[in-house]
Structure formats: structure tokens, C-alpha cells
């Protein structure tokens, strides 16, 4: 049968930063072809196709909370594959190879992680599941 794609509404203008992305304008409707855990979703909008940030989209039929996975306060062990320097106050700075506990895997690709006493958002594309047990 026909594949029915999820339709989302654009909530803010977005300017692409690489050729594989597409520009977005508030109010546009886009159809999602693929949702990537790193927060980039592949979509088609009119005649254009490309990657867009999930953080700039909301589902047509109401808030996204229903889609967000529940937090796991026990923490899911991951290792940082790339360093990142926090740019906003609710983010956390980490070096390569650090073991952290992932508390909340948000759809926008910025996961809430805990390192000792510190918690903050970190790019999920710089995290890799660790096979170490808690």
C-alpha cells in the first residue's frame, strides 16, 4: 500500500549550513522520510528534499511530548566520541573518551547526560553506547 509520511509544521526559520540540508520557513509543512537519532531528519518539502533539524519542527496534531521517550534517571552508560565545548548554560562540556550516564534521549538530538554531579545537554552524535555495566 502507499507509504504515509508523518507531516510536521516548521516553528522557526532555519538557514542551511551544508548542501545536504534545506532552508525552512515558519509555517511550512514538511513530510518526514527518515528520523535520525542525532536530531537531523530527512524530509521533503514541495519539490525540495534534504536534512532538517527536528528541533525546528512540531507535529501537526499537537505537542511532541507524546513522542519523546521517558527519562531514565538510572542512566544509560555512553562514551563521548568527540569533545564538545558548551555554548549555552544548560549544556555540558566534555572531552573525548569520557564515560557519562545518559538520562534523557530527546528527539532533537541533544541528550541530557550526567557526569558526576554535573548534568547538561550534549550532542547525541558525539555519544556511543558503552558496553560497561553500571
Amino acid at each position: 500500500g502507499p507509504i504515509i509520511l508523518d507531516t510536521y509544521r516548521v516553528i522557526a526559520d532555519f538557514e542551511k549550513t551544508s548542501k545536504h540540508e534545506i532552508n525552512l520557513h515558519t509555517g511550512d509543512l514538511v513530510e518526514i522520510v527518515e528520523k535520525n537519532q542525532n536530531g537531523w531528519w530527512f524530509c521533503q518539502c514541495e519539490s525540495k528534499r534534504g536534512w532538517v533539524p527536528a528541533s525546528y519542527l512540531e507535529p501537526l496534531d499537537g505537542p511532541e511530548e507524546a513522542e519523546e521517550p521517558d527519562p531514565d534517571y538510572e542512566g544509560d552508560l555512553h562514551i563521548t566520541t568527540q569533545a564538545y565545548q558548551a555554548e549555552q548554560e544548560d549544556e555540558i562540556s566534555l572531552e573525548v573518551g569520557e564515560t557519562v550516564e545518559v538520562i534523557h534521549k530527546l528527539l532533537d538530538g541533544w541528550w541530557v547526560v550526567r557526569k558526576g554531579e554535573e548534568t547538561g545537554h550534549y550532542p547525541s552524535m558525539f555519544l556511543q553506547k558503552s558496553d560497561k555495566k553500571n
Partner: peptide
């Protein structure tokens, strides 16, 4: 281009979205 997602992290949610979430 579905095969090569961007290598840089996506932007954080726009400010108005974060006010809604808060």
C-alpha cells in the same frame, strides 16, 4: 543525499520552543 546526514550537531530548539517546553 539521504545517505549523508550533516556531520555537525543540529541547532538547539529555537528560544520560543524552549519557553513552551519550560
Amino acid at each position: 543525499s539521504i545517505k549523508n546526514p550533516p556531520q555537525n550537531p543540529p541547532p538547539r530548539p529555537p528560544p520560543e520552543m524552549r519557553r513552551k517546553q519550560a
